[in-house]
Amino acid sequence: MNLVVNGRNTDITDTLTISELLTKEDVKMPQMVSVELNGQILKRSEFETTKLKGDDKVEFLYYMGGGTCL
């Protein structure tokens, strides 16, 4: 099935959870990511339990520090 992850079409075969998608997309530090699923921000506790469906739109949103170093 097809997912749209950060605007890119991504084909996945199995049903994945958000946590599994984070791993599959090689997100090094999931603690630094907030996840929006179809326009709604998920709670961190929902990453393990939320299963993705075809045509879901997922946005990984990253903490970014600022003008100096982080």
Binding site: G65, T68, L70
Partner: peptide, 8 residues
Amino acid sequence: GTDNFAAK
């Protein structure tokens, strides 16, 4: 224009 999370 801050540079750290606490300030943001």
